[in-house]
């Protein structure tokens, strides 16, 4: 598998580390991990970083994950980059909002590394 550059967006640094560890446990060879603690920081990070995959929380201060997904298409380099939401918000309406806004996957916290593998690998063209 080619090396992957990932953007992980979560207001918890602990959760960002757990998501990164889960990606590695899924067998994803990470070339670079960019971190952001909210949607606004993530949009700013995408101005100077090109990534292959975005994993994003929903409940965050400043700019939440749903708003980030709605705005991410304004960043040219991020167009077409798969986004997977990882969040405690498990309601159908949140899932629909996220997928309608452009997210390609949805993982509910708490999550296992296997769930990350199952949802993320197909988006990178790999079998889980």
């Amino acid at each position: 598998m080619d090396k992957i550059r990932a953007l992980i967006v979560d207001d918890s640094s602990v959760m960002r580390k757990i998501v990164e560890r889960s990606l590695r446990q899924a067998g994803i060879d990470l070339d670079k991990v960019v971190e952001a603690s909210n949607g606004a920081e993530a949009l700013a990070a995408l101005q100077t970083n090109t990534v292959d995959l975005i994993l994003c929380d929903i409940n965050m201060p400043v700019m939440d994950g749903l708003e980030f997904v709605r705005q991410v298409h304004t960043v040219e380099s991020a167009k077409g980059v798969p986004i997977v939401m990882i969040t405690t918000e498990g309601s159908e309406s949140h899932v629909v909002q996220a997928l309608t806004a452009g997210a390609r996957g949805y993982i509910r916290k708490p999550f296992t590394p296997e769930q990350v593998k199952e949802h993320v690998l197909p988006l990178l063209g790999k079998k889980p």
């Binding site: 602990v14 965050m60 405690t88 916290k109």
Partner: peptide, 25 residues
Amino acid sequence: EICNMIAGNFKNKLAGTDERCMLSV
């Protein structure tokens, strides 16, 4: 984060509530 996940997991188990209940940070 543990507190956040417990609250989210709890409300997600109450059918009909998770849609209409929001969590703070």
